[in-house]
Amino acid sequence: MIEMHDVYKVYGNGVKALNGVNVKIDQSEFVYVVGPSGAGKSTFIKLMYRQEKPTHGVILINGVNIKRVRDWKIPYLRRNIGVVFQDYKLLPNMTAYENVAFAMEAVETPRRKIRRRVQEILELVGLYDRMNALPSQLSGGEQQRVSIARAMVNNPSFLIADEPTGNLDPENSWDIMYLLEEINTRGTTVVMATHNKEIVNTMRKRVIAVEQGVIVRDEQQGEYGYED
């Protein structure tokens, strides 16, 4: 469960990104975060995986106040949170398999467990046959699926996605969305910032709209609500 109580974020340059956000996201929910560019979506997302610290307020992840967590403990906090980006952030000189395995190595998983789990997760994202391909040999959609596999391989409770379909054509975007939905039905909480009106309006889920640093709308089975 993710909870934010009265969260403010002011950056060092004086930009007020969030101005008093209160929200509660339950386990196994699927949430879209929408809003115009510069409204604070990215900050909202970054606070969840502790890329940024709140200036004021309390953020609880499964009951833990992440503002209070000591710096050296943050890695352990992050192991419970998978993150997916618009630009995939894959390591270019590693194969699909190695990219996913890297995430397990980094948390010191024994090698024999890595092999089985990576094959299993690559099968889930439909890239079992492509596991020896380098990112440059994969399409954008495939690369994003590798990055989702990497985010999910350590079994986090949360998957946080910042515009995961932003660089993809509609067909690939839908593939990614079906994958995220599949992951969500297996019990993982998915929080996704997006600009994709068609997806939000078709796959009806909870919609949180952020404008000028505050939540202006929070609806179950909501709509995108912007014209762009």
């Binding site: 995986y49 890695p75 952030k89 890297f102 995430a103 948390v107 990497r150 985010a151």
Partner: peptide, 16 residues
Amino acid sequence: RREIEVMRLVGASNWF
């Protein structure tokens, strides 16, 4: 640095 960024994202400890 990309490798380090990814390691940090997936929760590699600082000492790792």
